[in-house]
Amino acid sequence: MLHRAVEDISTGSDSDYSSTWISWFLSSKGNEYFCEVDEDFILDRFNLTGLNNEVANYAQALDLITDQLDDEVQDELRGSLDVQARLLYGLIHARWIVTARGLAKMVEKYKRGDFGRCPRVLCQSQSLLPVGLIDVPYEKSVKLYCGRCEDLYSPKSSRHGSIDGAYFGTTFPHLLYLVYPTLIPPKTGPPADGPASANNTGEGKGGRRRGREEVPDAVGGMSGEGGGEGISTASVALKAERYRPRIYGFQLNETAKLQRWQEAMRDRQVARLEELEERG
């Protein structure tokens, strides 16, 4: 925490205070969505397959990320190299967060609410997950996926709104819920991990909760999946709350019709899924 505070003061300047490029990058303002990629993941060239075509000055950018860059080169190219290093780190990050260890790290950030809360009122401040709309860089900025309403929102802050969506990829949030089905948010009531109340008020409290609930998942890796086997999600949508526009207490004809139609579609899906479940 202290380290981070120091970094905030020195934003923009290079790694004067922090030990590594990655820790500097992670602590700069606007990079809160990123998690730390393990160094051995980066050093395994197999994991970087194909990235040399995406990133100019690939070798030097990689050296910069891994703090092996010669000082002389650094002066010449530093400006452009920094951009390339960010791109490279982002693309590695997209691959990293869909690995078991990367997912576990992102789960921690998710439980802390580092990606923000769903702006939809009836989602009751459900914690969000970053997602890209496309896996190619320089196309679309990062969006936030809410597991409760299963919809996408734009980040509130323009700092985050300008992050490339390819640094998170299209797969990540869905894979996370696939691997950790116990984390799938309930469709009704307060969020399971109670982030709304424990938002900023109790860092210690949140830490304790994490210690109790999360460690089995994170350490056990796949234990979350086992816990989710018994969950039935066929009819969860029936419990989802929705907003009903009203004028002087009366619903509007056209909107009410649309909502009835939507709910009939929902019921159809529920019937389909329940049938499927009965068949096993």
Partner: peptide
């Protein structure tokens, strides 16, 4: 929005499959 994993739609038959698309559907 249609969730995808590695480019494939997540099936509604999965536990984590889409359940809320009706909410935005027209």
């Amino acid at each position: 929005y249609v969730p995808r994993i590695y480019g494939f739609k997540v099936s509604e038959r999965a536990k984590c499959g889409p359940r809320m698309q009706w909410l935005r559907l027209r």
